[in-house]
Design a protein around this nucleic acid. Structure first.
Lengths: 335, 335
DNA sequence: TGTGCTAACTTTACCGAAAACCCCCATGCG
DNA sequence: CGCATGGGGGTTTTCGGTAAAGTTAGCACA
């Protein structure tokens, strides 16, 4: 049986409250008593029970982290960044994988709130139907920070990259590398996906090229879907000579499709992704990508969340927008 | 303010207990009363408070998952497998990254136990000094399953691959591919690392080759350390012509080192890893590896953990050993 | 001698839910 | 009419800890 404060109190013949105060270094306990309590606690291996403490303090020291895909190294890095910051504050995180499903996500958020997590960091897979999600978040008045994806209509704290700028940066780079028939494999229909698509189109128009609808195809979010989408793209005539992919896993899958078709990267097609996952550099052809400072997103969102948690009243919504950085590797270097 | 059962009770003019029973479908509440309670709960958006429930039920519906490196897709896949099983049971997981540090891990396990998690799944980074860890686990009598790494002296439940068999399988494959000067980059000094090393040596001796000590070098667990270790290996004369790497990230880093040195894979050196992370196939040269059924490890360990949680008394320690499977790709195909 | 103050504890209330146990009244039956 | 039965609910205690409000003894001071 686990030792409780009560056990220590009985053993020492003092009241429970004395033990409680002594353990927390309260001032009105004598040095002698405190030492007796501490020694006894040590001897009985006393450890506080966080559930009980949470109930009375109305604080669980737990935050929820909901992300769409832990297998994507981008989000794994975000999680690591979050973990580093919160563990330094004595917090831990419940990490949930929504698998890009808005329904699953809604359910997971609901459960986290029932658990009374002190805060929430959420990379939402919601696209259009965000009302329910936002309603729940508001009802619980639970501090939360959205990351990577900002659902339309949300006026929450947000940390992420400027997606239109990201799309423009990637696409412009392809144009500068001499690509003329540029395609886009877009991801899930989130604000992030929409922003990148918008930047893609804007860059093309700025270069005097009208985006071709048949060059814009949906993928999901993983390499398998990237492979499939790329195969369909390769069947088109004229074939694209450059592809901007929503993220690196899709780009990696797309590259595999290109090799399997006997084509060359970047000679036949240039490829660029987004996210700069750590293995991009190790791929068959090192992948050009747009860095989104994944670890920094994690750390910043966690820090921001703590400000919210510590603030007695809600803070005005803050947006931390990270500048996308172009990482040029072999997959786009045609010269 | 969040709705409590008490609020419903007051609003309806019944006792708190009536509400509690009605919500849980207890038999001694009339249909009429139950419906009134349910309607009111709906109207006030009542949601149970899990902290309070945990305190009285002595059950948090939370399990702890401690892994050495979430950035390694192998462990991300394990986490996904665990998540799938436990969420179906209404559980969630607190995921912690020990970063291959035994001290961090010990601390994290301690904290999880203070949180009264109902169970623990642990891929321990402990090598020699496992006494503290095992003592704590035993003291709390918290059901736990070790995965991937079985510390010496532990008589806990375990799910993992037969590491000696894995090392032997990988090394034998290199021998069969015609490699004669075979090196090994071993990982952290865990039982897993030791087992793979043992299998490596055994395979060599079976082929009548005495393992050369200078061909056995330590790496940590990530691609960066794999790169560095490989660079040292490449400086040796005669140069190895085959390398078995502790895991895929190390192998990926090693491959990069080989390319950076202007050598060819597999013509100059054949490389094999372990873990079969999902991007192995997308690397510069698709990586041969040993599959460890990561998702299955996650699912099996979670299922086993639930058996422990549900069993009134401790189950005899069970070991689920998964057979390693050889995945042959280009990095070892010399013919 | 009485008063006030303070150090060092103790008591009481509470956090939100669940379980054990008690209670009241209607009904049935001999 | 008296008693057992049971449906439908209420009271109290418990979980392990915290906060605020007592309580007691000892000492200083007028």
């Amino acid at each position: 049986m686990r030792t409780r404060m009560k056990d220590i109190a009985e053993r020492l013949g003092v009241s429970l409250m004395t033990v409680s105060k002594a353990l927390r270094g309260h001032s009105d306990i004598s040095e002698a008593t405190r030492n007796r309590v501490l020694a006894c606690a040590e001897e009985l291996h006393y450890r506080p029970n966080w559930v009980a403490r949470s109930l009375v303090l109305q604080r669980t020291n737990l935050i929820g982290l909901v992300i769409p895909d832990l297998m994507n190294s981008f989000f794994a890095e975000v999680a690591r960044g979050v973990g580093r910051v919160i563990e330094a504050h004595g917090y831990q995180s419940v990490i949930l994988n929504s698998d890009e499903s808005p329904a699953t996500e809604l359910n997971q958020v609901q459960l986290l709130l029932e658990r009374s997590v002190d805060g929430l960091i959420l990379a939402s897979s919601c696209s259009t139907n965000t009302a329910d999600l936002l309603a729940i978040l508001n009802r619980y008045r639970c501090p939360h920070v959205l990351i990577d994806r900002l659902p339309p209509g949300a006026h929450s704290h947000y940390v992420g990259v400027d997606d239109a700028a990201l799309g423009e940066l990637a696409t412009t780079h392809l144009i500068e590398q001499g690509c003329r028939r540029i395609a886009h494999l877009h991801g899930p229909p989130t604000a992030t996906g929409a922003g990148r698509l918008k930047g893609f189109k804007r860059a093309l128009r700025q270069a005097g090229v009208e985006p071709r609808p048949d060059y814009i195809l949906p993928a999901r979010h993983d390499d398998v879907s990237g492979y499939q989408a790329m195969m369909r793209l390769l069947a088109l005539r004229p074939r694209p000579d450059g592809v901007f992919c929503y993220n690196d896993p899709i780009a990696a899958g797309a590259m595999k499709a290109i090799f399997d078709s006997g084509l060359d990267i970047p000679a036949d097609l240039a490829i660029i992704g987004a996210g700069n996952v750590h293995y991009s550099d190790l791929l068959r052809v090192p992948l050009s990508t747009i860095d989104q400072s994944s670890t920094q997103i994690g750390e910043s969102s966690a820090s921001l969340l703590f400000e919210c948690i510590q603030s007695p009243e809600p803070l005005p919504a803050r947006r931390i927008i990270i500048e996308p950085r172009l990482i040029i590797r072999a997959s786009t270097q045609r010269t």
